[in-house]
Nucleic acid binder design. Structure first.
Lengths: 339, 339
DNA sequence: TTGTAGGCGTTATCAT
DNA sequence: ATGATAACGCCTACAA
């Protein structure tokens, strides 16, 4: 079944040169006469020779591969990010190897080690879940440890440490602006809904609270609700709770759609009686009716910037890059708000 | 920056044994005395030694890795599939390396070769785009070629060839049943919407046509529309077209939601004046209102079965497996149909 | 410009 | 049960 694999010796023999010469041709060395190069290339093309990556890796200790880790790929945000990351990496000649770590520390550590053991040239962690919640700094120690071996990038999270490069959204400002708009339009009882305590969730809440404080509106704890990340669950939770509210800021679009379903059930007019702002500007934001006003976090930019910086670290060994780059967000206005 | 990597010689020296013994311990050979094993393990644990995968690969020509190829990961169906595939593969000790090939032949070929050049132990192609459209059989030649090196699995597509294993949905039956139901409920002018000519799209249309024919309802070409896979595009296309219809069967949920948006714009009552059936039972199906009746293709089952069969091929070298396994679909009834 | 030879870290086949 | 040693396929000084 298996095709017999041909190696550098075969090529050398067929082209009547030494393996060193073949190697030079393959690696584009300029110390080869044009004539020999042509001769060798002809043979290579003819038999379709590809260098054995293991042997290459053994000597060079690299495979031109970067490891991408996400908590779960089964999430629109993550899968988009992975798509753009790998697309950009390809243009630089890097392939990627994927890991889904789950949200628990143990899984994260195991997967980081798995990727490191494959000798990836770098590690990209996608999602603020990798940034811990700021309370237990030691929860991100495994990242700093990994960074001793290869450069580590964190997309949408901030982790301090040498050889770690972060790209984050300006979540505080985005939510601050959205909340401010809601206040401008007369809303005072604004509900903040989130499903996590991650780095970015915390920043979003901060933006929410700051907007209220700046307008001297009290921040009420009962208006900061923790929910399960599922549309129906959010809807039901809202139906059961007794607090009054006239607007919702959600930490992702699914949650926001859950709020929309709540309004539908209660026969509230949207946006007149209930305004809703989502986050991520994903496809569910336009699947619903009215369509969701949502904050676009520019995943494409984030990913491209991340890869560009990473490449400059890998190839130029630049180590004095800014450790954190901030990407602005956009408010995309649709039918669930008056603005 | 880089930690000095320790190797099998270091361990051997520290444990005062030969590298052969260390290798045996690492690989769980039973030809090692309990005493030596303990001694060696102690050293390994202490310094945290992991075998170099390149060196291992060089000798064994495998990395316990399978390549997963999708046209794009930025698609709910694909990202879910990848998630379940890699999850299941992990339980068998295999990691995965991901490629996004796009929908063009050239990209597919390039990525298959890329994955093969990494010496993956197997290849999994996700999506009926890899099955070609049945017209140009030679378009799948590169898959048969790849199958000469490693087993190839196709999820949701059928490709003939030795060492190729396919898992497909019973799309014909699923759409046949859904269409039949619509007919039972009095619909006669049923629109079939699709965005592709892939293997599975063709099967869906076949189910649609057969259901009509079996009830002596003529199959009208103008009721089989090709659309762009985007909700708004579908809505607009329907708004412009002049054919009358009272039901829609779509080849995925996004398209179905597009039809729903059309109904909303035209102020049609759903499901009374327009019934809609989607496909994939994805998250957009429950984001809209009324929620979408959709055909669930049991991605989880598909993926698990695929991996199980693959493993039995890899590990037991079983080659007499059925080349095609069919997984049934379920009709999930929601608000866009009367049933 | 080209060739020779040593090394990369394992695994596996021999002896012992 | 253990150890010595030859592959595995490539890269790269160093020699010619």
């Amino acid at each position: 079944m298996k095709k017999d694999v041909i190696n550098i010796y075969d090529i050398a023999e067929m082209a009547k040169v030494s393996i060193a010469t073949v190697s030079r041709v393959v690696n584009g060395s300029d110390k080869v006469s044009e004539k020999t190069r042509k001769k060798v290339m002809a043979v290579i093309e003819e038999v379709g020779y590809t260098p054995n990556v293991f042997a290459q890796g053994l000597g060079l200790n690299t495979m031109h591969t970067v490891g991408i880790l996400v908590p779960t790929i089964s999430d629109i945000y993550m899968s988009n990010a992975v798509y753009y990351l790998q697309e950009k990496l390809r243009t630089y000649g890097y392939d990627c190897i994927l890991g889904c770590s789950g949200f628990e520390l143990e899984g994260k550590q195991r997967h980081v080690n798995m990727l490191l053991s494959k000798h990836v040239d770098a590690l990209i962690l996608v999602g603020s879940t990798y940034a811990g919640n700021g309370e237990h700094v030691q929860d991100t120690d495994y990242i700093r440890e990994a960074a001793q071996n290869v450069p580590v990038c964190v997309v949408n999270g901030n982790v301090l440490g040498e050889n770690i490069y972060c790209t984050v959204n300006d979540d505080v400002k985005a939510v601050y602006d959205a909340t401010s708009k809601l206040i401008e339009y007369g809303h005072e009882r604004i509900l903040y809904l989130t499903d996590s305590q991650s780095y970015s969730a915390i920043k979003k809440r901060k933006g929410y609270e700051q907007a209220l404080e700046d307008r001297d509106i009290p921040v009420r704890p009962e208006l900061e609700m923790h929910v399960v990340n599922h549309m129906h669950a959010v809807r039901d939770q809202l139906l059961e709770c007794k607090v009054a509210f006239d607007a919702v800021v959600a930490s992702n679009d699914e949650i926001a759609v859950g709020a929309l379903k709540y309004a539908f059930k209660k026969e509230l007019l949207v946006p007149e009686q209930l305004s809703i702002v989502g986050y991520n500007n994903s496809s569910v934001a336009i699947a619903c009716e009215p369509e969701l006003t949502s904050i676009d976090n520019h995943v494409v930019d984030m990913c491209y910037r991340t890869v560009e910086r990473l490449i400059s670290v890998i190839e130029n060994k630049e180590t004095d890059l800014e450790h954190k780059v901030v990407i602005a967000c956009d408010l995309i206005s649709r039918g669930t708000t008056e603005f």
